[in-house]
């Protein structure tokens, strides 16, 4: 064997050693990246709950009111105006409330009366051309007559020209949706509930993956 052959053999061993070292580096780096972390799906759930509560605060005056009528008065006004509100079986005297929206989207209550103590009844208030929201509920909220209302059974008021749609208070809306979405990526949302408060939902969830678990109320 001459000197050149030893040189090649030495280089071969050096290369084998280097290759073996690199082989282990593969695992070292991969495991470093794969450190346990809060799953993206949980971040999404958390964000969705916060976004929904932000939206509810702007969208619905108070979740204690189950129903509202969105009214767009376009003309024919002779104050006070009179617009159909709570239907049969609903409380009118204590629960029917009328609001209009300010330019910033804030709720601005309009003093109002009702045509009878129980539904069906009309809301009677001084209005202008624009958008109004009339809320009511089966359970009187509050249980005392609202400020600015001192009569019912009034017959005064003319019906203006208006367009209206009636809708129910939004539900918590996330639990069933997220259960279905997470099941598709094999994540168990074993329990989820959203309890309505005045203008937000209090979400309680049990979220489990192989290396993450959250069981409690979302902030």
């Amino acid at each position: 064997m001459d000197k050149g052959q030893f040189y090649l053999i030495a280089m071969t061993f050096a290369a084998i050693t280097l290759t073996a070292a690199l082989f282990f580096i593969v695992f070292t780096e991969t495991s470093a990246v794969a450190e346990p972390a809060v799953p993206d799906e949980f971040e999404n759930l958390l964000n969705a709950a916060q976004q929904r509560n932000d939206w509810v605060e702007d969208y619905w005056f108070n979740l204690n009111w189950s129903t509202r009528r969105n009214v767009n008065i376009v003309g024919g006004i002779s104050n006070p105006v009179r617009i159909g509100a709570a239907t049969a079986g609903f409380d009118c005297r204590f629960s029917v409330r009328v609001f209009n929206r300010t330019a910033t989207g804030a709720f601005n209550e309009v003093p109002s009366n009702v045509s009878s103590a129980t539904g069906p009844c009309d809301a009677i208030f001084n209005g202008t051309v624009g958008f109004y929201e009339i809320y009511w509920n089966a359970t009187p909220t509050p249980t005392v007559e609202p400020a600015g209302r001192d009569l019912y059974g009034a017959t005064a008021g003319l019906t203006p020209t208006f367009f209206a749609t009636t809708e129910l208070a939004p539900s918590e809306g996330l639990c069933s949706h997220m259960s279905g979405a997470l099941a598709k990526v094999n994540i168990d949302l074993s329990s989820c509930s959203g309890t309505g408060r005045e203008n937000s939902f209090n979400y309680t969830v049990n979220f489990t993956t192989t290396d993450f678990n959250f069981d409690g109320a979302l902030p």
Binding site: D40, E41, N44, L45, N47, A48, A49, Q51, R52, D54, W55, P170, S171, G173, L174, H177, M178, A181, V185
Partner: peptide
């Protein structure tokens, strides 16, 4: 996945 919750029925 991003869940849009600012609507009556949430959508992802």
């Amino acid at each position: 996945d991003y869940t849009m919750a600012k609507m009556v029925n949430a959508t992802t």
